[in-house]
Amino acid sequence: MCRRKRLEYRAFWGEIIMELEAIQAFKMLNNLKNKGFITLLSLMAEDLSPIETDISGGENFRLTYTLYNPVLKEFKEIQTIVNAEMRSVSTLFKSAKYDEMEIYDLFGIKFKNHPKLDRIFLDKNFVGHPLRNNYKMPETQTKKGY
């Protein structure tokens, strides 16, 4: 049984960071959008599991939403820890559509109520999610031509 180290997260340039659970995070995002934080600058995902495990059970991924309010010129960051699924924010923030497709492609996190959850960068027949910590490069990977 390995211990997981929670990394220290430093506030940089004075942003406010909130760490919430998945359902609360969605409600908070909704609230913030109604208050004027209409821009989702970036959506980042991280794999928190240690490198050499085979079983992925328990909480594994951390998502970070960076929001911006153009009127008050403020930044906010919201972090959640998810297992393998999260509710999609593409109805709230239009730029999240491609962000979530990318995270699904590289990490395997599925987003509910997403209009079209597909692989975006990698080939449609690719097997595996490369940025996970337990991903091993196969020796050969076949790709279908056009």
Binding site: L7, E8, Y9, R10, F12, W13, E15, L41, S42, M44, T64, T66
Partner: peptide
Amino acid sequence: KAGAAVSFTEGPRGLIMCH
């Protein structure tokens, strides 16, 4: 050192962020 940081840069096409 251990930890995390973000940087904001204004590129020619828009904002570049690096976590």
